[in-house]
Design a protein around this nucleic acid. Sequence first.
DNA 1: GCTTTCCTTGACCTCGGCGTCAACGTTTAC
DNA 2: GTAAACGTTGACGCCGAGGTCAAGGAAAGC
Lengths: 130, 130
Amino acid sequence: MRISELAKRTGTTARALRFYEAQGLLEAGRSANGYRDYGERDHRLVTEILTLQAIGFSLDETRPFVECLRAGHDTGDSCADSIEVYERKLTEVDALLERLGDVRASLLAKLGDALAKQPDPCRVPSAGTE
Amino acid sequence: MRISELAKRTGTTARALRFYEAQGLLEAGRSANGYRDYGERDHRLVTEILTLQAIGFSLDETRPFVECLRAGHDTGDSCADSIEVYERKLTEVDALLERLGDVRASLLAKLGDALAKQPDPCRVPSAGTE
DNA sequence: GCTTTCCTTGACCTCGGCGTCAACGTTTAC
DNA sequence: GTAAACGTTGACGCCGAGGTCAAGGAAAGC
């Protein structure tokens, strides 16, 4: 299959696929005319990349998963390196959740203060006008 | 006060202050020699910018607060525009929290599956080795 | 006077993940 | 046969918030 078909089937663009190749994530075979030629294996690789990206992984963080698939495992997370990335990511997400919670709290506090200072009678905090 | 003193007192850099000026957030007076000259009012402006940035505001989002201060109010959130930004930000943060919660859940699920597939006996999920 | 430090402007660099355009070759449809 | 639609590489653009030079003036300490 050629690049635009793989792009369509994975829901991405040809440009992205070439970019992944430039990053060493994807290795495409070539047809006689020089066109890239992809197989089902590549389809799975790209799907793995896109799935992980959707969860917030950087391209670099998808690397262990891709290499795991290329090593012959049937899922990208069958390797220790991938699992480490999961764990690192989980720690990151937890830290982010905590920080965001703090941010939310300080936003609420600031908003409350500001509304209390506002002389606008239509925005009295006791009533919900929205 | 000159630029590096304001930078020191606000905990940022001279480059950042010049950048804020280029963005129209800060207007510095000039001494006879062409040096920027800042007063206490500017100190408060910069403090407001940095405080909001720390909560995740973009420079552009701090603009209403800065203009509110410049309009003579004693806090940057005494104006309706600022309050709107608070509310927008809160909505954004809530959306992000929800997405991040989903991400966390799917990460946990993936990690659980991967560990279940792992043949490593030192990583049995029933025991906490950390 | 001399050196070091601070100030000025201008311009390019960084990072991630591609989008977009250019200039050219190939395949496909009619 | 020829035009449209695909493919190739290369290179620059974008976003945000500055960092980092470079080349020059001003100020401050000795």
